[in-house]
């Protein structure tokens, strides 16, 4: 169980796979090698209800999900906004907002959660690798500060 977890949220299909593809691209990048061994792991989340279990015991969880926005753009999502939303649109369980609200209730030491949205064209329903690759620099930028702060705390420097 690593202290930092990077989790792509989505499914194997269409635009919904953007979060998975970005997380996968990060895993294949130089990022893991930059961090001390055993610091970071990557996973895919299909059902948001899995999130409390996927982040349990870690210090920093970076979640990447598809959002309705210009393909190739990146949005830092305020997880507080999501958890305050009352309206539910999922037949089969809970959405990301509710899952985020469950994390502090169901985990003994809730991790810091950073939620990054990658833009997809929900009408078109497709997800191109070109758009995914365009998001990577900004995604890395958004991860930089939380990772630095984690390392400072972990190493006491």
């Amino acid at each position: 169980m690593t202290p930092v977890r990077i989790i792509g949220i989505g499914s194997p299909h269409g635009a919904d796979q953007a979060g998975w593809l970005v997380a996968d691209a990060l895993q294949r990048s130089a990022l893991p090698a930059r961090l001390p061994a055993g610091t970071v792991s990557f996973s895919q989340c299909v059902f948001p209800a899995q999130l409390p279990q996927l982040v349990a015991g870690c210090d920093l969880a970076i979640l990447i999900d598809a959002v309705r926005a210009e393909p190739g753009t990146v949005v830092e999502v305020d997880s507080g906004d999501l958890t305050r939303r009352k309206e539910l649109h999922s037949t089969h369980g809970i959405g990301v907002g509710e899952a985020l609200a469950l994390i502090p209730v169901l985990t003994d030491q809730p991790p810091r959660v950073v939620l990054i949205g990658v833009g997809v064209d929900a009408e078109d329903g497709a997800c191109s690798m070109e758009d995914v690759n365009r998001t990577l620099p900004r995604v890395r930028e958004l991860m930089e500060a939380p990772l630095r702060e984690f390392l400072q705390t972990a190493t006491g420097t």
Binding site: F47, A49, Q50, P52, Q53, E98, A101, L102, V105, L106
Partner: peptide
């Protein structure tokens, strides 16, 4: 009204549900 509200009072039951759902998956 929702599982998020219920989890405050029934955390073990909600954890059980998530474990069982993951097992099925």
């Amino acid at each position: 009204n929702s599982v998020t509200e219920m989890a405050g009072q029934y955390p073990d039951e909600v954890r059980r549900g998530l474990r069982l759902q993951a097992l099925g998956n």
